[in-house]
Amino acid sequence: MLYNLLVPLADEHIVFNLFRYLTFRSGGAVITALIICFVLGPRVIAWLRSKQGEGQPIREDGPEGHLLTKKGTPTMGGFLILLAITISTILWADLTNRYVWVVLGVTVGFGTIGFFDDYLKLTKRSSDGLPGRLKLLIQVIIGTGAALWVSYIAPPEMATHLAVPFFKDLLINLSWFFVPFAVFVMVGASNAVNLTDGLDGLAIVPVMIAAGCFAFIAYLVGNSFFATYLEVHNVPGTGELAVFCGALVGASLGFLWFNAPPAMVFMGDTGSLSCGGALGSIAVVTKHELVLGIIGGLFVLETVSVIVQVASFKLTGRRVFRMAPLHHHFEKKGWAEPTIVIRFWIIATILALIGLSTLKLR
Results as ranks from 00 to 15, higher is better:
residue 309 Q to Y: 07
residue 350 I to P: 05
residue 35 I to V: 15
residue 64 E to P: 00
residue 319 R to F: 04
residue 164 V to N: 04
residue 258 F to W: 14
residue 321 F to M: 08
residue 287 K to D: 06
residue 260 A to K: 14
residue 90 I to P: 00
residue 83 L to H: 00
residue 206 P to K: 12
residue 339 T to N: 08
residue 164 V to D: 09
residue 179 V to Q: 11
residue 124 K to H: 14
residue 52 Q to E: 13
residue 116 F to V: 05
residue 67 L to T: 03
residue 328 H to K: 10
residue 19 F to A: 02
residue 307 I to N: 05
residue 45 I to D: 03
residue 144 T to C: 07
residue 25 R to E: 04
residue 108 V to W: 09
residue 164 V to R: 03
residue 24 F to I: 11
residue 298 L to K: 04
residue 283 A to R: 00
residue 167 F to Y: 14
residue 46 A to H: 10
residue 348 A to P: 01
residue 172 I to H: 13
residue 280 G to T: 06
residue 335 W to H: 04
residue 11 D to H: 08
residue 25 R to T: 09
residue 138 I to C: 09
residue 133 R to A: 15
residue 92 W to R: 08
residue 76 M to Y: 06
residue 286 T to Y: 02
residue 115 F to N: 03
residue 187 V to Y: 03
residue 178 F to V: 08
residue 11 D to K: 12
residue 187 V to F: 03
residue 356 L to S: 11
residue 308 V to E: 02
residue 93 A to E: 01
residue 307 I to Y: 13
residue 188 G to I: 06
residue 37 C to D: 10
residue 360 K to V: 14
residue 353 L to M: 15
residue 308 V to W: 05
residue 351 L to Y: 11
residue 268 G to T: 03
residue 189 A to H: 06
residue 103 V to D: 14
residue 177 F to C: 02
residue 206 P to F: 10
residue 98 R to L: 15
residue 146 A to C: 04
residue 278 A to T: 07
residue 204 I to V: 15
residue 203 A to P: 02
residue 324 A to Q: 02
residue 107 T to Q: 09
residue 30 V to K: 07
residue 316 T to C: 07
residue 346 I to G: 00
residue 347 I to A: 13
residue 285 V to Y: 05
residue 253 L to W: 05
residue 155 P to W: 10
residue 304 V to H: 01
residue 281 S to F: 07
residue 255 F to G: 08
residue 23 T to M: 09
residue 27 G to N: 09
residue 16 F to K: 03
residue 32 T to I: 09
residue 223 N to L: 03
residue 200 D to L: 11
residue 221 V to Q: 09
residue 319 R to M: 03
residue 160 T to H: 12
residue 48 L to R: 11
residue 64 E to K: 15
residue 311 A to N: 07
residue 236 P to K: 05
residue 286 T to A: 08
residue 235 V to R: 01
residue 330 F to I: 01
residue 277 G to C: 07
residue 59 R to K: 14
residue 123 T to D: 04
residue 197 D to H: 12
residue 42 P to L: 08
residue 233 H to T: 13
residue 85 I to G: 01
residue 51 K to N: 10
residue 47 W to A: 15
residue 36 I to N: 02
residue 98 R to Q: 15
residue 343 R to W: 00
residue 336 A to G: 13
residue 108 V to A: 14
residue 155 P to I: 06
residue 29 A to C: 09
residue 169 D to N: 15
residue 218 A to Y: 02
residue 191 N to P: 03
residue 97 N to W: 04
residue 301 L to Q: 02
residue 4 N to T: 05
residue 325 P to T: 12
residue 272 S to G: 03
residue 199 L to C: 13
residue 150 V to Y: 05
residue 105 G to T: 04
residue 233 H to A: 09
residue 191 N to L: 10
residue 343 R to Y: 01
residue 69 T to F: 14
residue 322 R to H: 15
